[in-house]
Amino acid sequence: MNIVVLAKLVPDLVEELTIDASGAALDMTFARLIINELDDHAIEQSILLKERSGGQVTVITLDLEGADDVLFTAAAKGADRLIKIKGDFAGGVSNHALARACATIVKELQPDLVLTGVQAHNDIDGSAGPLLAECLGMPYVGYVHGIAISDGKSKVLKEYPGGLVAELDVVLPAVLGVQASEQPPRYVAVSKVRQVMKTSKIEERSASEWDANGAPIIGRMFQPEASTHATMITGNADDVATKLVGIFKEFGVL
């Protein structure tokens, strides 16, 4: 089983997000990039499949700040090949361009299965998984939280609202958008990642095409001004608790 995982780096939402001078894009100067959380689940799922039935896991990401960390961490978890796509991403990264650039590289790898997070918080032009699937001419299923492979076919668990799950048979090769891995992403110690850095190699590829056609043009970005805001309860823990008890009484639950 040859599995390829596409991982995206996205701004860490814990940090303050600011809009740049153009007014139409995020200011990335001081933004801290981290792996898209659901891509971390996709990596975990690929390692679980490899542990279950063998094979090779290749992780691909764009050469943005933090890319080496993402790749070496994946290797420490069990990924075999690491690929970084080089290019000038200063003008931003659209998923359409990302999918087209990746498609050329992924095709060469001849995967049986491609996994990626079902979405990322900055997906403004669709999601990387289904865009990539169509560029590759492969079927796509998203919101996946379980995968079993046998006889060249995959059995896939797809989530619907309310907790309903569909079990689907998907012909391989396919691209699957992972909502959650079957186990929480494993923790690896920094020391192990450092060790892997000495032995693993990151392969570099250049994006042969960088075509963002299909992504909308953003005229303006802004922080939402809510029409309402919570009435803030202030004071020390004791004061706040007393006031909250008052509110519980007001709503008749105490």
């Binding site: 998923n95 359409h96 999601s127 289904p130 169509e134 619907y160 992504a215 909308p216």
Partner: peptide
């Protein structure tokens, strides 16, 4: 932008070469 729609919109954007606005 759901478990159903997200399996469709991006795929059709590439297949029909049409622009897509998400979220």
């Amino acid at each position: 932008s759901t478990s159903i729609g997200a399996d469709l919109a991006s795929v059709l954007s590439i297949r029909l070469n049409l622009p897509l606005v998400n979220s």
